[in-house]
């Protein structure tokens, strides 16, 4: 079975959404921060198991701290959201609960994966504690720089998409 599914990377600017995408699709990384404006789209086929493949059409959307301002056309038709925050900047996950509530309200049937990126810069336990305080369950702590958990998180997203297909 082979299907194509749109997923959208969301989150504040500078959290490393584009870096995660490049690490996943091209296996490259640059320390230079280049702002994404509008939307940048890439695709990659993920082999979930011997008989199942998913082509992920990944929309890397311009970052914002105000989720109510996302253009509906960017989020339209998404099968999954990947909410990325920067584990080294609390300001990018301080409003996680609020933003998740907004997504749930506008897109009740779209699953959300929460990813703490740049985990190479922080103590993972501190982040886990901070998220527990917000009663938020993260999916992965990742690092686009080292590649930690990047492949795994997109594979998990793909597997879940197949389950829901």
């Amino acid at each position: 079975m082979s299907v194509s599914k749109k997923i959208v990377l969301l989150g504040h600017f500078g959290v490393g959404k584009s870096s995660l995408l490049r690490r996943f699709v091209e296996n490259t990384f640059s320390d230079n921060y280049v702002v994404t404006i509008g939307v940048h789209i890439m695709k990659k086929e993920v082999v979930v198991d011997a008989s199942n493949k998913v082509t992920l059409i990944i929309w890397d959307v311009e970052g914002t701290d105000d989720f109510t301002k996302y253009r509906p056309s960017y989020l339209m038709g998404a099968s999954s959201f990947v909410y990325v925050f920067d584990a080294s900047r609390p300001v990018t996950y301080g409003d996680l609960k609020f933003n998740l509530g907004h997504l749930k309200e506008k897109h009740p049937n779209v699953p959300v994966h929460i990813i703490g990126n740049k985990v190479d810069l922080v103590d993972a336990n501190e982040i886990k504690k901070a998220l527990e305080e917000q009663e938020v369950q993260h999916s992965y702590l990742s690092s686009a720089k080292t590649g930690e958990n990047v492949e795994q998180l997109f594979k998990d997203v793909a597997a879940q998409l197949l389950e829901n297909a």
Binding site: S4, K6, T36, I37, G38, V39, H40, I41, M42, K43, I57, E62, R71, S73, Y74, M76, G77
Partner: peptide
């Protein structure tokens, strides 16, 4: 790969839609 989005436009019969700033 942007044009995969057109499937949704057909499926949801969106008469008119705009996607700004597609790279």
């Amino acid at each position: 790969p942007f044009f995969f989005a057109l499937t949704t436009i057909f499926d949801e019969e969106l008469q008119e839609e705009t996607f700004f700033c597609v790279q």
